[in-house]
Simulated scan of single mutants.
Amino acid sequence: MTTKRTRAADALTDLIIDVLRLNGLLVTAGDRMVAQLGLTSTRWQVLRAIIDAEHAQPVAWLARDMGGNRQNVQRIVNDLQKMGFVTLEENPHHRRASLVVLTDKGRRTYDEASRLQVPWANGLSEDLAIEDIDTTRRVVAELRKKLELNGERAST
């Protein structure tokens, strides 16, 4: 077993540290941005996962799609349900795994959060080359795919 990192592994380790720091900053910025709507970054992320799904899904599937764990996503779905942003409906395929369904209030709140995000994203992306953003996204997607193949799961 090699105990010395390659140059690529050193560069990847530095990238990982930068991504973790960026994540913290993004969560803080997102929390501030949507606080007036009763959301947090995590609640907003779960709403996005519900919207991105082709049809209503149980919490476990949403967690899988988000790369998180079921217990954390369940806690957030419970919060969203109390706030009237989602409802739980009977799952014809599994009695104990209810389907998470976005309410009209949830859709309006998500849409408003998205409107708040537009000027922020436009400002952040200013002076960044679209090619660099696309390359970064491909690298992140490839790393995620490798981790998923190895059975790694992130916590949300």
Rank of each mutant, 00 (worst) to 15 (best):
N122L: 12
V139G: 03
R75A: 14
A154C: 01
L124M: 14
V27Q: 09
L22Y: 04
E152T: 04
R21I: 08
T109V: 15
S114D: 13
A63F: 06
N23M: 07
Q45M: 14
L37I: 05
D14V: 12
R5N: 11
V77G: 04
V100F: 09
G67S: 07
A113L: 07
A60S: 15
H94P: 02
L128D: 05
L149Y: 06
L80M: 11
A141H: 12
K146I: 01
V118H: 11
E54S: 10
T156E: 06
G123R: 07
R75Q: 11
P92R: 14
E54N: 12
R7I: 10
T103D: 13
V118F: 11
L80T: 09
D132H: 13
A60E: 11
I51G: 00
H94Q: 14
L20F: 07
T40M: 01
R95V: 10
T136W: 05
L116H: 13
R115D: 12
Y110I: 06
A35C: 02
G106M: 10
N122G: 01
D79P: 00
T136R: 07
A60Y: 08
N23I: 01
N150S: 11
V139D: 05
H94Y: 09
R108T: 11
D10C: 07
V140P: 00
I76Q: 08
I50M: 08
V140D: 00
L149K: 14
I16M: 06
R115W: 06
R153A: 06
K82V: 08
R75P: 00
I17W: 09
A29Y: 00
R43H: 06
R108S: 15
R32N: 05
A53C: 04
P58T: 12
T135L: 15
A63M: 05
S155P: 00
L37R: 02
D65A: 07
G151K: 02
G67C: 07
V77Y: 06
Q81C: 08
D18Q: 13
S155Y: 08
W61K: 13
T3N: 09
I133V: 15
K4S: 10
I16V: 13
L37A: 03
T6H: 07
I130M: 11
V139W: 05
L80D: 13
N91R: 10
N72V: 10
S114G: 02
A113P: 09
Q117A: 15
